[in-house]
């Protein structure tokens, strides 16, 4: 069985840890608890071709208290940039992170627009979003709370990585 490392990146409070928890354990908690450092979870995914073990690196939110650490991307096969559509700034920061990732790694990236169970309150127009999405191989609207889009996102990544 092959293993693939996937890094979850994004601003603080966008729901990275919640997405992993929903995907791996099927659990969601409303309480926001900030992460420190890295936590790695594993999950096996069956694709048409083979079974792949995803090693999901949930990395501390990147903000003024914690900078971008290029070393976490070492050996990664893909990355997910998570944003929160109730907070415009999370996409601005997501794009900053995308820029930094592109400087150190040539691997596919997926954009997760999270918290879609809540009404959108960011001010990005459809045209702007369409342009932003072009920087990624795929994007998913996700809700760590309801689970919408979460499994399809990780399955899609597994498929891309085993194709």
């Amino acid at each position: 069985m092959i293993q693939k490392k996937i890094c979850l990146l994004g601003a603080t409070g966008v729901g990275k840890t919640s997405l992993v928890k929903q995907y791996v354990e099927g659990i969601f908690s409303e309480k926001y608890l900030t992460s420190i450092g890295v936590k790695i979870d594993k999950k096996q995914v069956e694709t048409e071709n083979q079974t792949v073990q995803l090693m999901i690196w949930d990395i501390e939110g990147i903000d003024r208290y914690c900078g971008f650490q290029a070393k976490y991307l070492r050996g990664a096969s893909a990355f997910i940039i998570v944003t929160d559509h109730t907070r415009s700034q999370s996409l601005v920061e997501g794009l900053d992170i995308l820029k930094m990732v592109k400087e150190v790694a040539d691997i596919p990236g997926v954009l997760a627009v999270n918290k879609v169970d809540l009404p959108a309150s960011w001010h990005w127009s459809e045209t702007e979003l369409a342009e932003i999405k072009q920087g990624f191989v795929q994007f998913f609207n996700t809700s760590a709370k309801t689970g919408d889009g979460v499994e399809p996102m990780f399955t899609h990544i597994a498929k891309v990585l085993t194709a």
Partner: peptide, 28 residues
């Protein structure tokens, strides 16, 4: 040490997120 750091950062980040939301709405 993790718990202590988490408590400090929790407060700082909650305030950052609240400020961020108000600020984004204000600026927009």
């Amino acid at each position: 040490k993790y718990k202590q750091k988490q408590e400090t950062l929790q407060i700082a980040r909650e305030s950052l997120l609240t400020a961020d939301k108000i600020s984004a709405q204000h600026d927009y």
